[in-house]
């Protein structure tokens, strides 16, 4: 591989950022319009179904740090839409079950979290939300491959 091939163009980095920011946008930036639109429809459908079915927006819990961190990462994969959903659900952009520091308080985020968890639809919603985030994270690799021309233009 030559140095020219190794260097990643700014357009690829921009496409990666756009892909995380708005599912499908990375593909659009790289000229893969149909592919980008199809992915956008699928990922947004998943995310919308997750919110409509009171999916849990994961909170990092110090009692189960590993698993809950993975859940938060899965949620965050969808980009700023997760942040907006958190503000709408919890009233502020929270990612932890408790506040940090000496004045640690639980406020009402856990109450809201458990309320959503108790909903009969929550398990479906949570699966859709995690899937949407993980799909979008996978799409970042696809954008990277397209940007580095590891994927052909067949079947855009």
């Amino acid at each position: 591989m030559t140095d020219e091939q190794k260097a990643v163009s700014p357009k690829v980095w921009l496409a990666l950022f756009a892909a995380w920011l708005l599912p499908g946008a990375g593909h659009l930036l790289l000229g893969r319009v149909r592919r980008g639109l199809l992915f956008a429809v699928i990922v947004w459908c998943c995310f919308g179904l997750g919110l409509a079915h009171t999916g849990r927006l994961a909170l990092k819990d110090p009692r189960q740090p590993f698993l809950t961190t993975l859940q938060v990462v899965a949620n965050m994969g969808i980009g700023p839409a997760d942040l907006i959903a958190r503000v709408k659900v919890y009233g502020k952009p929270v990612y932890r079950a408790y506040n940090r520091g000496p004045n640690a308080s639980r406020d009402d985020r856990l109450v809201i979290f458990r309320e959503r968890e108790r909903s009969a639809l929550s398990m479906y919603g949570t699966a859709y939300l995690w899937t949407a985030g993980l799909m979008n994270l996978l799409l970042l690799f696809d954008v990277w491959d397209i940007g580095r021309r590891r994927k052909g233009r067949v079947g855009k």
Binding site: I42, L138, G152
Partner: peptide, 10 residues
Amino acid sequence: AFFAILMRQT
């Protein structure tokens, strides 16, 4: 649908 579009070209 997601994996079919991601992993196959035609």
